[in-house]
Amino acid sequence: MTERILVTPRSLTRAPNTELAELERQGYELVRTTAGQTPSESELLASVPGVVGWIAGVEPISNRVLDAASDLRVISRNGSGMDNVPLDHARRRQIEVRRVVGGNARGVAELAITLIMNSLRQVSYSNEAIKRGDWARLLGMEIADRTIGVIGCGAIGQEVSRIAIALGARVVAYDPAPQRGLAPRGAFRWRDLDAVLAESDAITLHCPPVDDQALIDAYALARMKHGARLINTARAALVDEDAVLDALDQGTLGGYATDVFDREPPELTRLLAHERVIATAHIGAFTEESVANVTRIAIDNMLDVLREASMSTTS
């Protein structure tokens, strides 16, 4: 009987994929959820029976779904985050969970830098004004000699630091477990969180949330430099959106750019409609290079587990 693999990431269900085709050549049957959409719990419940492996995206995975996946041996995330997977329940069900670390770092880092420069130069604001027939100009800032705060200095944060320094910026970085040996060439310094908030012209987030508590709340915003920009390509839960909206309305926050949302697609809230907000459709890792790289690693991670399981069964 042909073993089945479930594929749910939107980037992989939207169009044919060379890396996935290799799985079919190896004899696996691929089961895909609705093309280009985040699958609902009901769709997952209908899809998981009989699958031995699952290449998973950012869709929430419930205990109920795992209980319905009686043959499942491995969930391989095509990304680094695992907050959508009930890890304790997976462990009880003896389902191994793997993730990809750093495979999309360049893509996300380039988007973060793009959003920083867009916000500093008011590109989106000017674009929208022109389309309305207005000749609206806001004085911008160049990134050279500015201070960029990087909160979370794993693979993505390190890549952001290198690019920012290459563009002539200074980088101040905070990480709860800093790699003290890390020192990108140029103006890079480790600082505590309050110092990063106070010194930065733009702050970019590259860390997971802790206990669903907002890292950037009214307290943190009050400690930021007047007119600073805030960039979030990590997790929506890192930011208190009401506090950000208040800071934008008061003019203390110069701009907010986000690629992540609680719900996708999001509702058009007052925050997202704000003229100083830039919003992108979770495109950080949605590049040809990142999709291919992460998919290859996710497939290799999954196949490693399936081969181990097969060997233990036959031995």
Rank of each mutant, 00 (worst) to 15 (best):
A187G: 10
T295G: 02
Q250W: 10
D300C: 12
N232M: 09
V291I: 11
Q250D: 13
A237D: 10
L253Q: 11
L193Q: 07
L248V: 03
D300G: 13
P209R: 07
Q250Y: 13
T233K: 02
M224D: 05
H274M: 08
G251V: 12
A228G: 00
Y256N: 09
P208A: 12
M224E: 08
A281M: 07
L238W: 09
V291M: 06
V210K: 09
D212F: 01
G255F: 14
I231V: 06
D246V: 07
T269F: 13
A257K: 00
A298Q: 12
G254K: 13
N232W: 09
A228I: 00
E264F: 05
V291G: 02
L238T: 08
T252P: 04
G284V: 03
R270M: 15
D240K: 15
A236C: 08
Q250E: 14
R223M: 07
E289Q: 06
C207D: 06
E199L: 06
V260S: 04
D194K: 08
V244D: 06
A187M: 12
L205M: 03
T269N: 14
L193P: 03
E241Q: 11
A281R: 04
L215W: 03
V294N: 00
D249K: 15
A273H: 15
D211H: 06
A298C: 13
I283T: 12
D201V: 06
L197T: 07
L253W: 14
A281D: 03
P266F: 10
I299N: 09
D249Y: 06
R235I: 10
V294Y: 00
D217I: 10
E289F: 01
H206C: 12
T252A: 04
D211N: 04
T258C: 11
D242K: 12
T287Q: 10
V277Y: 02
A247Q: 05
A298F: 11
W190G: 03
D242V: 09
G251T: 13
G254S: 13
D201I: 04
R263Y: 02
T258R: 10
D246N: 05
Y219P: 11
V239T: 08
R296K: 11
A281C: 08
D262F: 06
Y219T: 14
I203K: 02
P266R: 12
G227S: 14
G227H: 12
G251W: 14
E199Y: 03
Y256G: 08
L248S: 04
A220C: 01
L268K: 05
E267K: 13
D192R: 03
D201R: 07
G227P: 13
R235K: 12
F261W: 02
I297R: 04
V277P: 01
V277R: 00
W190S: 03
T295P: 03
A187Q: 13
E264M: 06
A236F: 11
R270W: 15
A195M: 10
I299L: 12
V196Q: 01
E264R: 03
A218R: 14
R191K: 02
A285I: 01
I283A: 08
V291N: 00
E289A: 06
D242F: 07
R270G: 15
H274R: 12
D192G: 02
L245R: 14
Y256D: 07
D300M: 14
T204L: 00
V244I: 10
H226I: 09
